[in-house]
Design a binder for these strands. Structure first.
Length: 697
DNA sequence: GCGGACTCTCTTTTT
DNA sequence: GAGAGTCCGC
């Protein structure tokens, strides 16, 4: 406890009942949670397995456990930790039958989920221009985040279609496929507790203390989950920072943390406001940015470190110029003695990594991209896992259909339909149905699977003896690996490489004596391979701002601090709330940095083939000038155009027929002034200023 | 059923 | 500017 400051110690040693720990960025939040758990075990005699710690990522859960082991030894291992999703899945594995699901149900991933919705709309004869699949899915997700089932959701009609009825159909089809989506994991767990008193009691009695990290990002259904779990003892400790709430789009509601004291009567509040991470200059910038948000717990992070060097802000010509300036800065930092792995580039959208990657590769700097397409979402990994699951008797219909024609077995669309019908008629699980097919008596499309079925049943004989449980043998002998060759040599090699990574991960997991079903769970919840690798390499990290939450680096670059990107165009539709969340996102980015910080803005950015001419972010324009160190030209370029009252380069203008645009250049003087304007819809135009009838916006 | 060529759409963030 | 979806001839 001597490692803690007064506020941290008070939080760690607080008694029973609801506890709110408001922990500003870099204020030693994880340390405080770890010490609180340690205190519960060592000083208060709580059994480790009676403590539940909910974290935001699987990685954070692992981190928590390892720090706990350091603090109190092996006992730390007994604490149950995980994300809401992984803990819910564990509970559902045990009690799913109460909801009418077999215990071997699987989790459906985003791709398959989308495919299911598309198919469902097609079956219902609803054109995508009448009801867009992503709108339907978005609505369903919204309901699930709010804890609403098809029965309890509000009626919703869209262009004459009953959206709520489609929600019911979607749930029905998931059930037929014995699948749950991500949101179902939480919602179904809540339904268990709502509707099944026996199960509810067992779950309520499972833990004596519940601790939740990143509490500002909980949504209503997660809130209900916690309320139900802690209904008897109220021993709920939540840790979070309302200024870092960045998952509103996922249903997170800041009010859970803002109103905690009102929701949980008798709650104690602890404030951690001393920042141990960032230099004073970086913290000043962060505080100045976040101060402009309303509706927040008022607080001010106090610096404990030296003032340090001013954060920089650079304006770049385009995204490649930006990438080059960033690269130069990274090299600069390196020569100042920082290691590559202490540097990160954190962007708003994953697409921004493209130009950076190119330039970093040319400059031969070591980097790794975190995120993007997740490892387990890759086509070849999903195929390989489908084969493996079928072999190991936990594969389902979706997985059989997925691989039935890979490699080509002469089963097309019609054949696939036929196969699905035959399988449904058999009343068997896909994995078990293969036994029947192996006898070779099936006809039609199913008959074409006989060789595969025979191969699988012969491999099943001694699958327990093989470290990878038959993965490579099956992929080889079925011709799947060979079929990858048709994608070209290089492509195939990469994919086979990925499959080998999967193989070693399976082998590793099997050594820990996990069952195949448990392995599939892990694969479903681990969004990337990141958590299966050690990150010991000395590389620069590239990732999205969202993923960077909870991490810290000596040196941080935030590229694309522009209108349209940060705040993102899509967030503008949500008005003030959307802007506030974007501001918090920038705040999260800034507070990741310990020593060095650089923000960049591009004048031109190519987004999906089109040119964009963004203005510097409004967040930068908000700042006092002495808090950032701009490189040459200060602030947005304000070259006045002679004789044109108020019209300046960079001004946003409105033209009666061309619409909105930005002034890029001007030539000539007086009545002869010509300006070049980039219009959003109508492209680049040169206009006589005198006649253009431009309105400045 | 397959493969090639074509068109069209969709571009935020993730457990 | 890429990926998915569609059409068409074999």
């Amino acid at each position: 406890m001597s490692e803690l400051n007064q506020a941290q110690q008070a939080a760690a040693e607080a008694g029973n009942g609801p506890q709110l720990i408001l922990a500003g960025a870099g204020s030693g939040k994880t340390r405080t949670i770890v010490h609180r758990i340690g205190h519960l075990i060592a000083a208060r005699g709580v059994a480790p397995h009676r403590i539940l710690a909910v974290t935001f990522t699987n990685k954070a859960a692992a981190e928590l456990k390892s720090r706990l082991s350091q603090l109190i030894g092996d006992d730390g291992g007994g604490v149950v930790s995980g994300t809401f999703h992984s803990i819910s899945l564990r509970m559902l594995r045990r009690y799913a039958d109460a909801l009418g699901f077999p215990r071997t149900f699987q989790v459906i991933d985003a791709d398959d989920q989308k495919a299911l919705v598309k198919r469902l709309l097609k079956q219902a004869n609803i054109a995508t221009d009448r009801l867009h699949p992503s709108y339907l899915l978005g609505w369903i997700e919204h309901c699930k985040h709010a804890g609403q089932t098809p029965e309890s959701a509000p009626a919703c009609h869209w262009n004459g279609t009953d959206v709520r009825a489609l929600y019911a159909t979607y749930q029905q089809q998931l059930r037929e496929h014995e699948r749950m989506d991500f949101s179902d994991l939480i919602l179904n767990c809540v339904l268990l507790m709502r509707e099944h008193p026996g199960v509810s009691e067992a779950l309520r009695r499972r833990f004596d203390h519940v601790l939740v990290d990143e509490y500002q990002d909980t949504n209503p259904v997660q809130h209900e989950w916690l309320t139900l779990m802690c209904a008897d003892h109220h021993n709920l400790t939540v840790v979070g920072d309302d200024d870092q709430s960045i998952y509103g789009w996922r249903g997170a509601d800041v009010r859970h943390i803002l109103d905690f004291e009102r929701i949980w009567s008798g709650a104690s509040v602890h404030r951690l406001e001393e920042n141990y991470r960032s230099s004073g200059a970086i913290l000043n910038l962060a505080n100045a940015i976040i101060k402009k948000n309303e509706d927040r717990h008022d607080k001010c992070l106090r610096a404990t470190r030296e003032y340090g060097s001013l954060p920089q802000w650079n304006i770049c010509n385009d995204e490649y110029d930006e990438a080059r300036k960033i690269t130069a800065e990274l090299i600069n930092w390196r020569s100042a003695g920082y290691a590559w792995h202490e540097m990160a580039v954190l962007y708003r959208s994953n697409r921004q990594s493209l130009a950076l990657e190119q330039v970093l590769r040319e400059a031969a700097l070591p980097y790794r991209i975190v995120g993007g397409v997740g490892f387990f979402e890759r086509l070849e990994i999903k195929d390989a896992l489908a084969y493996w699951a079928l072999l190991n008797r936990c594969g389902d219909t979706l997985q059989l259909l997925r691989i039935c024609n890979k490699p080509k077995r002469g089963i097309g669309n019609k054949g696939e339909e036929q196969l699905a019908a035959q399988l449904a008629a058999s009343g068997l699980r896909a994995s078990d149905w293969l036994d029947l097919l192996a006898e070779g008596k099936a006809t039609g499309a199913a008959g074409k699977l006989a060789p595969l079925a025979k191969l699988i049943s012969s491999l099943r004989q001694d699958v327990d003896q093989i470290p990878d449980r038959g993965l490579m043998q099956l992929l080889q002998a079925s011709g799947y690996l060979d079929s990858l060759q048709s994608m070209g040599e290089l492509e195939a090699a990469t994919r086979i490489d990925n499959i080998r990574t999967l193989q070693s991960y399976i082998e590793l997991t099997m050594e820990q004596e996990l069952t195949p079903v448990e392995f599939m769970d892990r694969a479903a919840l681990l969004q990337s391979s990141e958590e299966m690798q050690q990150d010991n390499d000395d590389t620069i990290t590239l990732m999205s701002l969202h993923r960077a939450k909870g991490l810290e680096f000596d040196c941080v670059v935030l590229p694309g601090v522009e209108e349209g990107l940060l705040p993102h165009q899509r967030s503008l539709d949500d008005g003030e709330a959307g802007i506030a969340e974007e501001r918090r996102l920038l705040y999260v980015g800034i507070t990741r940095a310990r020593r060095q910080l650089k923000l960049t803005t591009a004048r031109v950015r190519r987004l999906f083939g089109e040119m964009h001419y963004p203005q510097p972010s409004r967040f930068i324009r908000d700042l006092p000038a002495d808090i950032l160190q701009p490189d040459t030209p200060v602030m947005p370029q304000t070259t006045a155009i002679p004789a044109a009252g108020g019209v300046q380069i960079g001004s946003n203008v409105l033209h009666p027929s061309f619409g909105e645009g930005v002034i890029l250049a001007s030539e000539g003087t007086g009545d002869a002034t010509r300006i070049t304007v980039q219009f959003r819809k109508s492209g680049l135009k040169r206009l006589m200023l005198k006649y253009a009838a431009l309105q400045i916006v």
